[in-house]
Design a protein around this nucleic acid. Sequence first.
DNA 1: GTTGTACCTTGACTTGAGTCAAATGCTTCG
DNA 2: CGAAGCATTTGACTCAAGTCAAGGTACAAC
Lengths: 228, 228
Amino acid sequence: MPHPRVPFLKKIQLFAPLPEATLERIAEISGLQRFSDHGFLFREGEEPDFVYCFIEGGVVLVGGVGSQEAVIEFFGPGESVLLPAALLGLPYLVSARATSDGQALLIPAGKLRSLIDEDVALAAQCARVLSRHWRVLINQIKEIKTQGAAERLAHFLISQAEKTHGPVAFALPGMKKEVATRLGIKPETLSRTLRKLRDFGVESDGDTIRISSLERLAEIANPRAGGE
Amino acid sequence: MPHPRVPFLKKIQLFAPLPEATLERIAEISGLQRFSDHGFLFREGEEPDFVYCFIEGGVVLVGGVGSQEAVIEFFGPGESVLLPAALLGLPYLVSARATSDGQALLIPAGKLRSLIDEDVALAAQCARVLSRHWRVLINQIKEIKTQGAAERLAHFLISQAEKTHGPVAFALPGMKKEVATRLGIKPETLSRTLRKLRDFGVESDGDTIRISSLERLAEIANPRAGGE
DNA sequence: GTTGTACCTTGACTTGAGTCAAATGCTTCG
DNA sequence: CGAAGCATTTGACTCAAGTCAAGGTACAAC
């Protein structure tokens, strides 16, 4: 009879494609943890104890403190964070603040490290997930270095939408303040930039965004030819 | 008798810690390739054919084109690039331009992908190297989002020095133009910022940088407390 | 040489985003 | 309800970095 946490593991991209036997082993060393909105799951500088896999709810990864705060990225259900720190056994470079109530599976870092040296499928899958993440970060760096605030915001909104055509509505993955730092701008600037995008069919009401046409918005995001 | 390319592999961080048997197998599928200054090794959008490991000389990874160009990072001897694209079989997100004449070991992407699914040591090592790289990119993002041009330049110069104390002199890893985009600024701004740092013991003569005291420079790089 | 062609520097001016400060809303809590 | 506490918006002003436009300077080709 399978371990009761195996079904949860199957929802996590990092583990989903692994064989049943491996999942069993991971399920055995994992634990389920609830967290609540605005709470910190861990902080920059701490020793890596766990890899966090989100079942429900999500977090925002933040580097630095106070006015020097840089939001790296938002993470939600199915995603996992801290694999790099866990594999290397080096202190976290970022803190994670919950953007909602939720639950996460925690995999002990040390045990995961041992598993990786024994299980090809797991190791290969880690490499693939890290690779995918690498590409996400590269895109973010390219964007910050070459685009202005409006383009970056437009692109970010498009990436948050689940569709690629026509109109959409969705909730921002965190506070406006956090979205602003994710984009590398100040909250005031986000407010003003969002205003500018009204002319391009973007309505914002609280943390809900309504876009009248993703195609039209895409024109701003990438006036030149396309490089994702 | 060992394969003649094994000694080269041992100089590459990605492969160095692997057992002899694995190195043999990689050596057999690899090939040595010369390249010359300013030439492109590959371009954004191309299908991933190889992982490039630098034996001698280096490249700069660049995303986008023309005035939209974003330099991601410089790579030199012992380092390798494109592992993520190769593992995922997705088109390159960046182009690589040589910053000097040199030689690289080329590992065919397809064969490497198969090896990874068979060899735990190799797979685990890939995951570790990707993890390390992830941390480098996170730091770069944190920096761009929170620091001004002068701080970023100071930090960059410090990272290029091999020592951590006292005076140093070294050559920039590429043209000033490229260094500027790596830092997310324009060449003109780099020129002016370098000027400002003269008051803090930074002399520049062509592509040679002389720093009179790394400690003094570090004060600018991180006026606040320290996060790696 | 001198002509060319990059690369880099400098200066003057512009601008996008930041800063500071004051409303406005929205929740929470007594 | 009203006060307090945030997050967000708006407005006015500032400033860091970008843009545009000359110069230098170094090296390569003729």
